[in-house]
């Protein structure tokens, strides 16, 4: 067999392998096993299986639910798939300063464990959407950096 023919077969095999890998990852069952976070209904649906284990939970910070104590650095808030209205939600407690952008209505992903009532988060991450907007009149985004300092005054 000539070298040229051999390398063409190699090309086709490589393309086949790459396509098969891709098809398996995109269309196969792998999708279900790769879970970065659960949303609140998924966590609750797992029942006892979701309790105690270290998991990530994603959702929106419920309006009017945030309690932040700057003296003790204790943070508590509720999260669910909607920031308002009657949807399942879970109470989250964490210790430490949250990221600057943490606020009501914001998307968050928390790491920790759920005991059935309280989700004890060891890490709170803020999820930014793909929307980028200029500030409206009177809004000063630079103030975001100063709010933490103000709280400590």
């Amino acid at each position: 067999m000539s070298t040229r023919k051999y390398s063409r077969i190699a090309a086709l095999c490589a393309l086949g392998t790459a396509s098969a890998l891709l098809a398996y990852l995109l269309l196969g069952d792998v999708e279900k096993n790769l879970v970065y976070y659960w949303d609140v209904p998924e966590l609750l649906a797992h029942g006892d299986a979701g309790k105690g284990a270290v998991v990530r939970l994603g959702g929106l910070v419920r309006k009017g639910s945030v309690v932040w104590q700057p003296e003790t650095l204790n943070l508590a808030f509720s999260m669910g798939n909607a920031a308002e209205g009657d949807v399942p939600h879970v109470r989250v407690q964490s210790h430490g300063t949250p990221p600057q952008m943490f606020q009501e209505g914001m998307g968050v992903v928390v790491e920790g464990s759920f005991n059935g009532e309280i989700f004890a988060a060891s890490r709170v991450m803020v999820k930014h959407s793909n929307e980028y907007r200029a500030p409206v009149d009177g809004q000063r985004p630079q103030d975001l950096y100063k709010t933490l300092a103000k709280d400590q005054d």
Partner: peptide, 26 residues
């Protein structure tokens, strides 16, 4: 060349990862 073709399989996955799975990345 063979390796260069096979590892390319990851590139569409990078692109679609944010649509297929729950992710922190927007």
């Amino acid at each position: 060349a063979v390796v260069g073709i096979i590892i390319y399989a990851d590139i569409p996955i990078v692109w679609f990862s944010v649509k297929m799975w729950n992710s922190l990345h927007q």
